[in-house]
């Protein structure tokens, strides 16, 4: 029977037309432009010239900084997504249990997420400053240190700081996605498990994790995309210095485009990043979805 509200078959399409148009204009169209630019000659001033095949890609990949940048990107994504998912999951488990002050704890958890990333990165940049940073000040005043410590003594350590800050700002997102999954789990499963004699670990393994998996999948896929594309932390703290040794792909291609004025290779790299993300999220979703199907 046809609904009385739908007068024409095309009507639903009419209602979603605005969103489709917006997506076309603000998502599909720019992606198309980037793809075109990636295969075109772009002058230093920004004039788009003729088609030049794969030259931009060759230029980008043959740059001496490229291997280090890709390695950094891998470390950055795996460490930030991996560790923040682990800690975020634990936080969600804790926040899902009833305890006094749970509401306050949950709101505190949201704070880092609610502040803008650039501001957080600038604040952290200030905290770890050697000259008048808060970390040194606190440790000096508490008597743990006699002299100020240079918390950024080498670029490797600076990169570790960047990853750590990335983890801290990502935890709330994971926590809340997982928490929403946890809250939808019926108490009855746990009661049944308790009756069957399951302890904490068994309940976690056989009840919680399988049931919260859809939320975990969503948070991990989104996180991979966000973290891969995350720009403010690294740009604010090191700008990739020294000599691109702390750059990830996104900050590197920004420097390439707007400091080095090499926009062709930069757009080529952003296409590569887009494809990497498509493939990575595709594989991850396929693997997790398949497991869920077989589990049913």
């Amino acid at each position: 029977m046809r609904s009385v509200f739908v007068r024409h078959r095309w009507e639903p399409y009419l209602w979603i037309l605005p969103s489709i148009l917006l997506m076309l204009v603000f998502v599909v169209f720019p992606i198309g432009i980037v793809f075109r630019l990636a295969f075109s000659n772009i002058s230093r001033a920004g004039v788009v010239g003729e088609f030049n095949g794969l030259k931009n890609f060759q230029d980008a990949v043959s740059s001496p900084a490229f291997p280090q940048v890709m390695l950094n990107t891998l470390i950055w994504v795996v460490s930030v997504v991996g560790i923040s998912t682990l800690i975020g999951f634990i936080c969600a488990l804790v926040l899902n249990r009833p305890f006094a002050g749970r509401k306050i704890a949950r709101s505190i958890m949201v704070f880092p997420w609610a502040a803008s990333l650039v501001i957080q990165a600038s604040v952290w940049n200030y905290i770890i400053k050697m000259e008048y940073g808060n970390l040194n000040n606190i440790l000096l005043n508490l008597g743990f240190l006699q002299d100020p410590v240079n918390w950024r003594i080498s670029y490797q350590i600076e990169f570790v700081w960047e990853c750590a800050i990335g983890i801290i700002v990502t935890i709330p997102f994971v926590t809340f996605t997982v928490l929403s999954g946890l809250q939808s789990i019926d108490e009855a499963y746990y009661e049944a498990a308790t009756v069957d004699g399951a302890g904490f670990w068994n309940k976690l393994r056989h009840v919680t994790i399988p049931l919260v998996k859809p939320s975990l999948t969503v948070s991990t896929v989104l996180n991979i995309i966000y973290v891969f594309n995350s720009f403010p932390i690294i740009y604010t703290i090191t700008k990739g210095a020294p000599a691109n040794k702390t750059d990830t792909m996104v900050t590197y291609l920004y420097m390439l485009a707007f400091y080095d004025q090499r926009k062709g290779p930069a757009t080529a790299l952003s296409v590569v990043g887009f494809l990497i993300l498509c493939i990575a999220s595709g594989i991850y979703m396929m693997v997790t979805m398949r497991k869920e199907d077989s589990g049913l």
């Binding site: 772009i42 001033a45 920004g46 004039v47 788009v48 707007f258 004025q261 926009k263």
Partner: peptide, 10 residues
């Protein structure tokens, strides 16, 4: 500045 100018030129 450089970003704005080169985008506008493009």
């Amino acid at each position: 500045l450089y970003t704005v100018v080169s985008t506008r030129i493009s």
